[in-house]
Design a protein around this nucleic acid. Structure first.
Lengths: 207, 207
DNA sequence: CGGTGTGAATCTATTCACAGCA
DNA sequence: TGCTGTGAATAGATTCACACCG
C-alpha cells in the first residue's frame, strides 16, 4: 500500500472537497469537474488505496462519500489527531494562532514558540506560548510531531536543528531558505517567493 | 527552450542560494551538497537553459555564479519586475505587508485589497490599501500580474473570479479550497493543511 | 583528474482503452 | 448506458554512464 507523493496530495485535497459536499455519493467524473484532474487519475488514486471491497460494500453507483472520506483519511494517516506547533510568532507565525484552516483536519495546534519573550506576553492564544529554549523539553512532552517554521530566513536552519533534535517529524518551512535535515525528517517548503517564481516560470513558458 | 515544472522550481531555488553565496563560481557537486539534489539533476536543469556557450564564456571550472544567476533569471522570466497584490488583509494577508521575503526577487508588492474598509484604515503600509471593489479598476491600471489570495475559504472563489475578470495572470492561493479558473490562469496552492497532509502521508508511508 | 554536457536507461506518473458490472 | 477497476501504453523526470574539455 504505497501511495505516491502526487497521489497523496490529490487524495488529501479530495478529502477537503468531500467535507464540503453534502451529496451522498460522487462519481469519478463529478470529481473530475470539481478538481480538474482526469477521472482516470482519480480512479487510479482511489484504487491505490486498495479498498475496492469496502467501497463496493457501500453499494450504488459512484463512491459513497462518507466511506471514501473515511478510507482516504485512514490510509493517509489522517484519522488520528496530530499535534503541531508554530515556531516564530512574528506577523506570519502569529497569524496562524487564530487560523481556522485546520478545522476539519486532524491537526491540532498545541504550542507556539518565539525567542522574544515580550512578544509571548503581548500575544493572546488558546495554546501555550513559550520561549524557544523550551522546544527541547516541550515537544517530546506534548507529543508534538509537526512544526510550522515561521522565523526569519537567517534563523531558520538553527530553529530547524533544534526541532529535529527535539524529535519533530516534519516541518512546514515558510522561510525562503533550503533547510538541511537528516534522513527521515520531512520538509515541505511553502514560500511565497517560490510560489511566485513557479507561476512566472509556467506563464513565461506558455507564450 | 521548455523548462519543465520541477526543473523551474529547482532553478528558482538555486537563484536564491546563489544570491546567498559570495563565491565566484560553483560546481554542480557543491550545489548537490547545498541542495540535496543530485549533481546530475542539477546539470540537466542547467543544461535545459540552453546556455552552454554563455556559461563557458565565463571560463574556469564550475559555473560562474553571476552568469548562472543572470541566465536562470532571464530564462525563467524573473529578470523583469512583476507587480503583485494581496487580496484579503486579515492576519495572514497583512503579515505580507512588511514581509521581506520578496527582497532580491523581481516581485513588487503594489497594492492590498480588503472588503472591510475599517481594516484598511487601521493598517499601515507602504503600498495603497484599497477596498475590494476597486480590484477591477486598479489591477489593470497598475499592471498587477499576480495576487496573493488570503481571504477566508468561503470568499476565495468569488475573489478569484474578480481577479481573473480584472486580468490577473496568476494566483497564489492560501485558502484551503480548490479554485476553478479559466484556462491560462495559473494557480499555486499554498495551504497549511495541504502541506501537513503531505508530510503525514509521506511519513506514514515510510514505516 | 575533476569538471560539464548529454544520450541512453530507468524509474515514476498519467492517460488510454477496455473488461466487467449494475 | 454509464460506472469502476486495471493492465498496457505513453509521457515525463531522474539517474546513469561516459565522451570530452581545461
Amino acid at each position: 500500500m504505497a501511495v505516491s507523493k502526487p497521489t497523496a496530495g490529490r487524495l488529501a485535497a479530495l478529502v477537503r472537497m468531500l467535507n464540503g459536499t453534502d451529496a451522498k455519493s460522487v462519481t469519478s467524473s463529478e470529481l473530475e469537474q470539481l478538481t480538474g484532474w482526469s477521472s482516470a487519475t482519480i480512479r487510479k488514486d482511489i484504487s491505490a488505496l486498495d479498498a475496492a471491497a469496502e467501497l463496493e460494500a457501500a453499494g450504488g453507483t459512484g463512491y459513497d462519500v462518507q466511506t471514501l472520506r473515511r478510507i482516504i483519511m485512514e490510509r493517509l494517516g489522517l484519522s488520528v489527531e496530530k499535534k503541531c506547533c508554530i515556531v516564530g510568532l512574528g506577523r506570519l507565525g502569529s497569524s496562524f494562532l487564530d487560523y481556522n484552516g485546520l478545522e476539519k483536519t486532524p491537526f491540532i495546534l498545541a504550542a507556539g514558540f518565539d525567542s522574544n519573550v515580550n512578544r509571548l506576553e503581548i500575544l493572546d492564544a488558546d495554546v501555550p506560548l513559550l520561549p524557544t529554549f523550551k522546544i527541547a523539553d516541550v515537544i517530546p512532552r506534548l507529543g508534538i510531531e509537526y512544526a510550522l517554521l515561521c522565523v526569519p530566513p537567517d534563523h531558520a536552519q538553527a530553529a530547524a536543528d533544534k526541532l529535529v533534535a527535539a524529535g519533530i517529524k516534519g516541518i512546514v518551512n515558510y522561510a525562503p531558505v533550503h533547510l538541511v535535515v537528516p534522513e527521515g525528517i520531512e520538509i515541505e517548503n511553502v514560500c511565497v517567493a517560490d510560489a511566485l517564481c513557479s507561476l512566472t516560470a509556467r506563464i513565461s513558458a506558455s507564450n
